[in-house]
């Protein structure tokens, strides 16, 4: 819901004001990211600025590993969406196969998201004592193995 709404508003705003070129907009908030409060108070009016701010913060603060995970997750979303579109367009005849393929992407996405959350340094307090990064990865592997076992078993 949130991204959809913001996209709509951004398209409406793109028509009216002259758009600054994207690299400059990325650079300026990235440099001014430490001075967050003033930008927030000023840019609360347009969601477009918020989006830019979000993107710049993301590129600036996210570690490389996490970005890798995010790419994987994006890939999974694309694959899942493709399967779903296929199911809608071409019918769901081997329903078992569709289901297990789709649930494989969803499940893998969710497990990767879990790994991402657990390794995110900002969540240190939440998982701090109990789950180290290695443990999180081991959990991820265990979950994936079980997931794909079920998928292969279900695919018919």
């Amino acid at each position: 819901m949130a991204p959809k709404r913001s996209q709509i508003s951004s398209t409406t705003t793109t028509g009216v004001p002259p758009i600054p070129s994207s690299p400059t907009t990325i650079h300026t908030p990235a440099s001014s990211s430490p001075s967050q409060p003033p930008s927030k108070s000023s840019s609360a009016t347009t969601t477009r600025d918020v989006l830019h701010d979000l993107w710049s913060r993301y590129t600036a603060t996210t570690p490389q590993r996490t970005k890798l995970l995010d790419t994987f997750m994006a890939f999974l979303v694309v694959v899942g969406a493709l399967q779903f579109v296929y199911c809608v367009v071409a019918g769901n005849y081997p329903f078992n196969a569709f289901l297990s393929g789709f649930s494989a992407t969803v499940g893998q996405f969710v497990l990767t998201a879990s790994l991402r959350i657990q390794t995110n340094p900002e969540n240190e307090g939440e998982f701090g004592g109990t789950i180290s990064h290695e443990r999180a990865f081991a959990d991820f592997v265990l979950g994936s193995v079980i997931l794909h076992f079920f998928c292969v078993n279900f695919i018919n």
Partner: peptide, 28 residues
């Protein structure tokens, strides 16, 4: 809501639903 909740529930649901569908009587 906490990240712990997300991890617990998502991993349970994603795997558990698949696991439950393995039983022929439950199926789809």
């Amino acid at each position: 809501y906490s990240p712990r909740l997300y991890v617990a529930y998502s991993s349970w649901f994603a795997l558990g639903t698949l696991a439950s569908m393995q039983v022929p009587f439950v199926g789809f």
